[in-house]
Design a protein around this nucleic acid. Sequence first.
DNA 1: CTTTTTCATGGTATCGGTATCAAAGCCATT
DNA 2: AATGGCTTTGATACCGATACCATGAAAAAG
Lengths: 360, 360
Amino acid sequence: MPDDQKNLTIYKIAELSGVSVSTISRVINNSPYVSAKTKAHVTDIINKYHFSPSSVARAMNSNHTQTLGVIVSDITNPYFSELYLEIQRYAVDFGYSIILCNTFYGGSNHGVSDAIPEKTYFQMMLDKKVDGVLILGGEIDRDTISDSYKEALNRMGRQIPVVILGQSVPDCSCTFLNRNISGGISALIHHLLALGRRRIGFVGGEEGIRTTTARLAAFTQTLKNLAISFDPSLISLSNYYAPDGYRAMAKLLEQTETTPSAIICINDAVAQGAIRAIVDKGLRVPEDISVVSCDQFPSGEYTCPRLTTLDQQNSYLGRMSIMTLISAINHDSEGINISHEPHLIIRESCGARLGFQFER
Amino acid sequence: MPDDQKNLTIYKIAELSGVSVSTISRVINNSPYVSAKTKAHVTDIINKYHFSPSSVARAMNSNHTQTLGVIVSDITNPYFSELYLEIQRYAVDFGYSIILCNTFYGGSNHGVSDAIPEKTYFQMMLDKKVDGVLILGGEIDRDTISDSYKEALNRMGRQIPVVILGQSVPDCSCTFLNRNISGGISALIHHLLALGRRRIGFVGGEEGIRTTTARLAAFTQTLKNLAISFDPSLISLSNYYAPDGYRAMAKLLEQTETTPSAIICINDAVAQGAIRAIVDKGLRVPEDISVVSCDQFPSGEYTCPRLTTLDQQNSYLGRMSIMTLISAINHDSEGINISHEPHLIIRESCGARLGFQFER
DNA sequence: CTTTTTCATGGTATCGGTATCAAAGCCATT
DNA sequence: AATGGCTTTGATACCGATACCATGAAAAAG
């Protein structure tokens, strides 16, 4: 049986075919400078032995590896995994494979405590000679970025294309895709006001993280513009997961004197935790408190009650991220403007679809 | 400023240091055959220019890339992402990076239709010369495995270590970690019976997939052993996500004449969908129907009601998977026996923790 | 029928490291 | 001073592809 062997090289195929390595290379790369006869013969041998050229050797003198690095803080977070799905799809289409780097930064509740510094991954990306790096979240999302982090990031950015999904940081040798982080908050508030909710709280997210800071700023600003009194005891931050939402909501209910009539959560996981905390206090959603969220997760359509939330168009963001990176690698373009406007998904947790109209 | 440059090689460092490349290589690899003085000098230059050796060139003659391939069907599925987290953690500890391969096989509801054949990824893994491959799920989980798939899998298995988390398939040149797929079903049924539930249905999972087939078999077998009548109209399969749970549950409620008193779901996402379907029919969980699940997801603790479910010890499985693969690469051992017993987490959706005791 | 052009093929340097071998320098011993 | 052993260093083949140049054969042009 003409079986495949380990460590088949172009030299062995040349030997088996009775031609030179140059010819084998030509056949592999579909060069026109091979006779039909030779090509057919070599192709037969290649198929027979299931030969396929080593990407490592190819990378050696082409200086590109057809590999991309993707850095995320936590792939169990639906926000990141949804982005990843889209990225993976396009990467394969364009012939790239992806090295996924999970930094464990930002602490989910998964029992893993120590984060892997992004600097470690930056160096790894450089050593592995990936063709480009995509950063979806992590240390770059901090309000204040340390000099040493920035230095490491810039060192990488000077050597290979780096695309960052988030919001621009000054003096970075990277391409930024500016997410409209705070968009939609105003729509959320207006929707709640229209339902008769005026005492609105904000739950979840982490202090010092740009998403949280920006959304919180949009929250307070919108209230101010509408001349609605702002009560700091209605704000309770923690983190981005269901247990955090539970904890933050429970804390909010304890620290405030008057129960809020509505809560805006940083994302659907937090909203789920918050609802659970409200229910555990013997209150009802949406009858007593309306709960809405800023970032749609797939599960939000199946909770009790279903979540009113914002669609951040994550598939679109994922697609734009990978396309921008590939463009940067091919020097096709110099930065792409993305325009995504979060849009309101009205379901049950605000009360609207259940026909409630509240008075206060 | 002594700044770093692009494409720094060992040759340039040799030139800058005034020694030979051999010496640079020795310094990098901590060889004892370098004088302290030379070592210090070269180290200074390396640090000054931020030189780090190319992994590609190293792979060229060491024949290992310090890279692993991980193949999953859908990383947005918490089962896979939880496994991945553990795998990533240990991989980095042992100096490996991970190429993640998402096959889109098994259709979630994410709008992506066409799966990427695993064969495509197998070839990619071979070409990229990864040191080992870990398959967490996908085509291997089918009840019947096609010859062409098996052939491609075996070809890969003969060249590099391949570890598969699931259940053994005959005549495969891979190491299997046999998950106890059907374990815990019996515990679930006994728990429901103790609560007074006898008319038990099964919801979710996909026909022709081993997890589903095995759990369904354990389900019917346990009922048979207990001499409980088995009603095929109480079984409704679909897939592994919340929308599938919703759909399957709605269908079950339509197709059966007598409403079931309990439902066992394939996992927590499906359970969430099923609960939603039950509630939409105007029934209550757990008062009218108890709902339990076979596979714990983190969100299950924050649903309304909280889910009674089985802990499959996914962290343990992830850890064993990566450790087994690394052992196989190092020829340290020949297969590891894993012992994980799913254990029952009693919460609200069955009724037990809410103090219900049902009669029938 | 010779010369020129085109086509097909082979030989070899190269990418950036590591491994192996050879050799030079240094010190102590005889 | 010559010898031997140890430390330290340098030169070069090699890993598996591709790129470039050279060459031989066949076809077209003179």
